[in-house]
């Protein structure tokens, strides 16, 4: 497994790919770089429910004080969704709660040039995952 690409690297790659098949092929490839989660971490609590695919997401906090950062790991049983998990981890993992909450995920997905339904469909579990990431940030910020 290679290192997770940065959000900028992901965006640059997407912008270079003009054909939808190439963009999806790249997304599927990104999914293969997701470490995934061991079965023990795929708990009901970690599961983000969707109708058509399953997504799991776990978070942990590293650092102290103003330098506390949220780290996320995730997985899905669908390749394309796992690719989206990869983009999501590139976008959110390792950031402070304020940075997480300031990120405009809808605009980001506009730049990826993928079908709109990928970002907004509550059914594929992806949008619920964004909600969960943001909730983790809100909770961490509330802890002061």
């Amino acid at each position: 497994m290679s290192a997770r690409p940065s959000l900028e690297e992901v965006l640059e790659s997407f912008e270079l790919l003009e054909d939808w098949e190439d963009r999806y092929a790249y997304l599927i490839d990104l999914g293969k770089h997701v470490a995934g989660l061991p079965p023990a971490l795929k708990t009901e609590e970690a599961r983000v429910k969707g109708c058509t695919s399953q997504v799991w997401l776990v978070s942990r906090v590293e650092g102290a004080g103003a330098e506390r950062r949220l780290h996320f790991e995730g997985d899905s049983d669908a390749h394309i969704v796992r690719g989206l998990v990869s983009v999501l981890l590139s976008a959110y993992s390792g950031r402070t709660p304020d940075e997480v909450l300031a990120l405009d995920i809808e605009a980001l997905f506009g730049r990826l040039g993928l079908a709109r339904n990928l970002s907004v469909s509550r059914r594929n579990g992806f949008f619920s995952m964004v909600e969960r990431v943001r909730r983790a940030a809100v909770e961490l910020r509330a802890e002061g």
């Binding site: 109708c51 695919s53 669908a78 390749h79 394309i80 339904n117």
Partner: peptide, 22 residues
């Protein structure tokens, strides 16, 4: 070897609307 969700998303790119899920 493919998840129905992925099949549905890619078929949409080919202009084909199908239902995927349970």
């Amino acid at each position: 070897g493919a998840h129905p969700h992925d099949v549905g998303v890619l078929l949409d790119q080919h202009g084909v609307a199908v239902r995927v899920g349970h």
